[in-house]
Design a protein around this nucleic acid. Structure first.
Lengths: 229, 229
DNA sequence: TCAAAAGTGTTATGGTTACACCCATGA
DNA sequence: TCATGGGTGTAACCATAACACTTTTGA
């Protein structure tokens, strides 16, 4: 290498805001820090970026190392670089957000963290660093994006009922939706495949299961279709 | 400092995609690099982040140093960190995009750059590093955002005609709009203040000038109003 | 008087909203 | 048979889209 940069360098980390959805509400995955600073406090999973890995790979790796989660929807959120955000050094963090469906993922705390757990986003514990701010930005992004891109499906099992889907939107958007209008609209997009399969183990009439047609969505989008709830 | 991080650190830069609009089309500001690598090639203005300045401040400073531009709309775009994006070192760059109105800004190349100039975004020269990719992401962001936030006004002088505003949207969105429908819609939002002032020095009927009512927009937005073109 | 752009309303269409009852199932 | 949620249609309303001519001004 002939030309190298001679500049004092800040540290670089990635942090992940992992969202999940259960029957009650929207959750975020937090880990309890095992090392200072903020030892014992809850924080977003994350860590340092290695010199030979790209940012997204670093986010996926940290997620895997700290919580065991793999195979998730992951998207860059924002980069936080205020001067005092880490009490030790200058640290810039590239934040990502991830969506997973709780029913198909088990999480476990691994070596780097004391514990990993889900918290209601409406009522999270105090967080380390500027992680409350990051969580709030992530939540706003999710609220905005869920309306015009079909990312909500990432939070559901592959097979879901229309009521589950409606509840998802109601939870994230924080408003109730009309059942008939919701069904009319979502079905008219023709992006859901109705299955010959019904809900099981419910103590009332079983609902039909549907599946999101990803391929069709990609095709339609190329032709100028815009998803919108 | 008791705890410091002992990790190999990548370098960190900021880059700015500066958009301007003239009678013809949408422009982007580029500088010609005065130092290797890519010496002599066109690139986005940008540079290293100092340890004691936040990211946005670094972007503003670089803009000022390389082009003389101050007082602009500036927003974080995306962070690019592919492993091979700089031929020397591992360099992560936090990209910003800026909107300025050409009629009220003069640009000049300053110390760090050989030259600074405007190029049509439709037809830019080959760019250094991954700056073509950054430009393309910025353009998509602008196209998306201009429709649901009133950022387009940043590209116009304070006082503008409805035709100028319409041309702005036509240029950025790449589609023609109906004059009557456009005026009806934008005026019905009640965010434009009609001035008792007309266009000057035109060789046809002079158009009325308008001004964007920022304060009213902020008030309305707080009440749930959504700007949308 | 000509060229150039400013300015202005109406109608048809399509999407959104509001709204209530019967059905299937398991306990 | 009761409780629970599943599933369905219509009418009113509102926003969008399509469309063409007259007015003003300077050259």
């Amino acid at each position: 290498m002939i030309y190298t940069y001679k500049f004092p360098k800040p540290s670089l980390t990635v942090d992940c805001v992992v969202f999940g959805l259960d029957d009650q509400d929207l959750k975020v995955m937090l880990i309890q820090r095992g090392v200072p600073p903020f030892e014992g406090q809850w924080a977003l999973p994350g860590g340092f970026v290695a010199l030979d890995e790209c940012l997204e790979a670093a986010a996926l790796r940290e997620l895997q190392e700290e919580t065991g989660i793999t195979q998730v929807f992951l998207e860059q959120l924002y980069t936080f670089g205020a001067v005092g955000r880490d009490p030790r050094d200058r640290v810039i963090t590239v934040a990502y957000y991830a969506l997973i469906n709780l029913s198909e993922h088990q999480i476990q705390a691994t070596t780097d963290a004391k514990a990993a757990a889900w918290f209601s986003v409406a009522n999270p514990p105090p967080l380390a660093f500027d992680h409350e701010q990051i969580l709030s930005v992530a939540l706003n992004r999710l609220k905005g994006k869920v309306r015009y891109e079909p990312i909500g499906f990432e939070l559901l099992p592959t097979k879901f009922t229309l009521t589950q889907l409606q509840k998802l939107y109601e939870t994230i958007l924080g408003q109730n939706l009309d059942k008939r209008n919701f069904r009319k609209k979502i079905l008219s997009m023709d992006l859901l495949i109705p299955l010959d399969e019904m809900e099981k183990d419910v103590k009332h009439r079983a609902a039909r299961l549907y599946q999101f047609d990803e391929q069709k969505y990609l095709d339609l989008r190329q032709k100028g279709f815009n998803f919108e709830i």
